[in-house]
Write a protein that binds this DNA or RNA. Sequence first.
DNA 1: ACCTTGATCAACCAGATGGTTGACAACGAG
DNA 2: CTCGTTGTCAACCATCTGGTTGATCAAGGT
Lengths: 122, 122
Amino acid sequence: MADQLSQLFAALADPTRRDMVARLAVADATVGQLAEPYDVSLQAVSKHLKVLESAGLVTRGRAAQTRPVHLEAKVFDLMTKWIERYQQQAEERYQRLDAVLDAMNGPADGTVQTDPQEGTAS
Amino acid sequence: MADQLSQLFAALADPTRRDMVARLAVADATVGQLAEPYDVSLQAVSKHLKVLESAGLVTRGRAAQTRPVHLEAKVFDLMTKWIERYQQQAEERYQRLDAVLDAMNGPADGTVQTDPQEGTAS
DNA sequence: ACCTTGATCAACCAGATGGTTGACAACGAG
DNA sequence: CTCGTTGTCAACCATCTGGTTGATCAAGGT
């Protein structure tokens, strides 16, 4: 439905799903094993898994009656790449703003902070 | 309402909000400036900003009639810390599994560098 | 004093989400 | 073959979400 990045963020926005991911990072598990700690029905867990699966975070095999769930850790990269890009951009901008303020504070008193005239507005 | 981590992931699960964050990484902006590229009402954008604000991703000042929006890039750390933790855990597990397979395939090799010793798995 | 501009609040609506219960499909064991 | 185990599908329900429109507030500009 939505782009994968949206699905990834949405999938991890739920504490239960985050906990499932955390446990799957340790070991693969069946649906029943995953459901056991939570106080919800097996069907609810199955739905959560469907969300994780369609986000690409998880794959399911089949062994006997059980459907072992496996974490696909590499898709995390999509999120970290996105985050780091804009985090870094904001960081750099902050550094530049700092430099501007330094330049303004240098020749003056040093306590001035109320006139951050912004030249390039869009 | 929910824990901040959930709010952060949920906030970034929307493409419009991700785009706003991307633009705020470049420069602060007013609500009107933020709304301009999108084909939605100003009120809708205001709602998006409320989501970003309650997640801690942005702060709003006040200058004249406008309400400049500022990105708080440091809260990204909460997400990256979470992601990297489990990504790394899954990665290490994968390495261990690899080592076990290697040991089964060629026990005479000796190039094993990981520690396949798995103790008590709870 | 009066409008104009920028933004929020309030009420409402359609659709998504997370949960439930009940039925049933797939498989292995007896 | 029949039964128990494991899990999914389907329908239903309450709440959340993202959008709308209309009213309102806050601060200048004239």
